[in-house]
Design a protein around this nucleic acid. Sequence first.
RNA 1: GGUCGGAUGGCCGAGUGGCUAGGCAGAGGUCUGCAAAACCUCCUACAGCGGUUCGAAUCCGCUUCCGACCUCCA
Length: 486
Amino acid sequence: MESNLVVYNTLTRKKELFEPLNPPFVGMYVCGPTVYSDVHLGNCRTFISFDLMYRYLLHLGYKVRYVRNITDAGHLEGDRDEGDDKFSKKARLEKLEPMEIVQKYTIGFHDVMRLFNTLPPSVEPTATGHIAEQIEMVKEIIENGYAYESNGTIYFDVEKYSKEYNYTALTNRNIEELLANTRDLGGQDDKKGRLDFALWIKAKPEHIMRWPSPWGWGFPGWHIECSAMSSKYLGSTFDIHGGGMDLAATHHTNEIAQSQACHHSEPARYWLHTNMLTVNGTRMSKSAGNGFLPGELFTGSHPLLTRGYSPMTVRFFMLQAHYRSTLDFSNEALEASEKGFKRLMNACALLNKLKASEVTDVDINSIRTRCYEAMNDDFNSPVVIAELFEAARIINSINDGKSSVNAEGLESLKSLMNDFVFNVLGLKEETAETDDIGKLVGFIINLRLEARANKDYATSDRIRNGLQELGIQLKDSKEGTSWSKI
RNA sequence: GGUCGGAUGGCCGAGUGGCUAGGCAGAGGUCUGCAAAACCUCCUACAGCGGUUCGAAUCCGCUUCCGACCUCCA
């Protein structure tokens, strides 16, 4: 299988031709959410970005196994041995069992992902469902000499590892300086070096989420789950590993170290990182308290919003920016996206009503070519959208009788929009009109038509204005009156 | 402090050596009973200062400002 897809690889800080290990199969692992609270829009952006990539890879004909985990094991709030695990803390606050918390927010996450029209991953493994695999991996890392036990907790020995491997490959930082800082500040915990991180953590008496292990009762460190689950489902080396940029420095760096220490091979060949969603220029995050919840966005209940925006408006808004750029959130930007999205959807709807002519004076194939070029250039969805607006202009122009297409051109226009708007970008029409409403509106339109024929414009306008208030907009043209939801 | 990434027209955002996206907003026009939608036209920007070049928003250097990561976070 041949493709010209080029992706930006964080490992090399360059765009590289994407060549799967075993075409046509592609293995892609994306770090999923920690389900101890509602996902916010920043999380959603990442998953929408990877949904775009997943959809495009599928569109190109790859057989993709897309693995996205659910983190549901009790990781600590801080990096130290002190403090609660997030689930237990939340469980106490909500007076629930930790696994009730997990269930509640997992369902919430899935609901939101469905609203955003993301395709479900092929496998969605949970950390708690793979404790045995994690323990096995920790054992192997110990056997290979890259980890040590200290009071029932197992730490990864970063200093030792960094002598043989490039620990800072993803971030390009100077390991000597990092280690130097480490020793100065050392002293807390039972670690040898402060860069060392826990693979397995001994449970304190108050910890509810705990499992037996060769080192006593405990729970896995945060990073090991992704290493264990990605290698289980995708092999010790797979094609794409993705996640938010904030995970690169710590989580992904440690994942690479664990996998290398265990399997002696790079876990993934292409590391793809999505950029942050910002509010007033600052990163949206759980801890900063500036996170928008999807629900607040859809209903407009967030204090910073003047009104609500639909899931597809938000998806479209996000796809209008490249996944590696930061994207700033504002009312104005959302409003602009909402109008643009409707324009695109209206054009798609019009497409089914167009009639073919004998001649063609529009060029659809070059638009399609440019869409592929854009997607092949590191999934450049904003450029694809720009091209689709050009197609929308053509569709409207044909509808106005100012341009024409032959049957063949009309078909390629239809497949263009179907492929890119719906399949690749994953957008969908939200104003699914039921037959009943359609019949009702049709009946009212006919009544109004009679009024207009009698030049009774007062009645005609009253009907139009009334419908407008109910969210239905009438549009008069030579061919008759059409309508759409506002 | 270290590492990395930014600064694009009224706003949001692509691009990244010559052809100078796109959406929204704004102006004018066509159409229309009037609207709406649509179409056409206009508004043509790249933080500042130097340098390289026939040519730079795009490359190089400096300056200013902003952000992310280095601590849980997509």
